[in-house]
Design a protein around this nucleic acid. Structure first.
Lengths: 206, 206
DNA sequence: TTTACTTTTGACCACTTGGTTAAACTATAT
DNA sequence: ATATAGTTTAACCAAGTGGTCAAAAGTAAA
């Protein structure tokens, strides 16, 4: 079809994909190179041919995950929507995003505990800039649109209410829905409207 | 001093304590029996003398963690305080509790992903009863004290804003405080007042 | 001191782990 | 065809893993 070099040999992408699934599900320590090889349909030695070691493979996976996740977050926060609309859009979009890969946040947090320095370094290499959003909130406070509130707490509240219910699904589902997965799914769907209204209701000046 | 049988041989408690630290920090897969033995100051074979296998030891640790955590949660929710006061007290108490063992929530969530059935069974054996608190919220809505809101979302919001900022400390600290641990600690301290006011501000009927 | 017992240990084992290596298999250019 | 380079494999290895066992060390009663 095209003479462009395939962006990566098919095998390499297969490996990365398989490694991602296994690493995210079982963590660095629980993951087995053999299982990754099996899932990629190749020999174990080929893993070491493409990625020299388990650590290198892990880091490649980790970088790929972060570089898909982070731009996604930044994008919306920096858009030109009015604040309330931005909060609504962010909640909806973010809840959906995490639901697609619900294991990733816990995976990241667990690995971050396991090896703080290495992972943190990878994190830093991607730029994240919450300052612009912070300034926007301050401006709205100045205009009197919203109640005075520390922007950081507002942002952390927003993130918490989006992320936590998804990562804690295995517990919550049991505690409040008796293992009914569909009910919990509907519950998360509701949250896309409930959370932004809850927030706006708290900060809107009346 | 006393003729009562020691509730557990000193060694057994030492082992449990050491195992708890190692398991929570590194997870079931990352934990090594040798490291636990070293930390308990004993021979590795003695681990198997008291707890027959790594799995058994892990479960003992897991049960101990849960049975300390869960009564702590239930207690306050069922007390006789007025709703707003209860929310304030819960936030303060709960944030402090988790800060004492910040690794435990991620540990639980990670293990829950690793082996859903086994862990969930352990979970179920401890009774948790959110219904009473749900009813109380409904009563307040009926009385017109607070805005109509799905009690489940309110509870999940409360839990999210308490737990998430602590478990995500390694990320948040970097994103907003440039690795300044004390600043983040102060930030969490602020949240003990900010979170309840944020919630009450959202649900109070004006 | 002897007896009977629990607790603790060092040495050991079978097995799995990540990783290596040399040889075989492509495919492309000459 | 054949040389050259990249790709893939089976067989293998050293290090570490959870777990075992028989013997030693402690302990308390007879």
């Amino acid at each position: 079809m095209s003479e462009m070099a395939e962006k990566n040999s098919n095998t390499e992408q297969n490996i990365l994909e398989a490694a991602k699934v296994v690493f995210v599900a079982k963590g660095m320590d629980g993951a087995r190179m053999q299982e990754i090889a099996d899932k990629a349909g190749i020999n174990k030695a080929l893993l070491h041919y493409y990625f020299r070691s388990k650590d290198k493979l892990f880091e490649a996976v980790f970088v790929e995950i972060l570089s898909k996740l982070i731009p996604d977050i930044s994008e919306l926060l920096l858009s030109e929507l009015p604040l309330f609309e931005k909060i609504r859009k962010f909640t909806q979009h973010y809840i959906d995003t995490i639901r697609e890969n619900p294991l990733i946040p816990v995976f990241i947090l667990h690995e971050l505990n396991r090896e703080p320095e290495g992972i943190a370094r990878t994190f830093k290499s991607m730029g994240i800039q919450p300052q612009i959003f912070i300034d926007e909130i301050k401006r709205e406070i100045g205009k009197g649109t919203i109640v005075p509130i520390d922007p950081l707490h507002l942002i952390v509240n927003l993130l918490s209410m989006c992320i936590f219910p998804i990562v804690a699904q295995p517990i919550m589902q049991h505690l409040i829905f008796e293992e009914n997965g569909e009910a919990y799914s509907a519950f998360l769907e509701q949250r896309k409207k409930e959370v932004p209204e809850f927030i706006i209701n708290s900060i809107r000046k009346k």
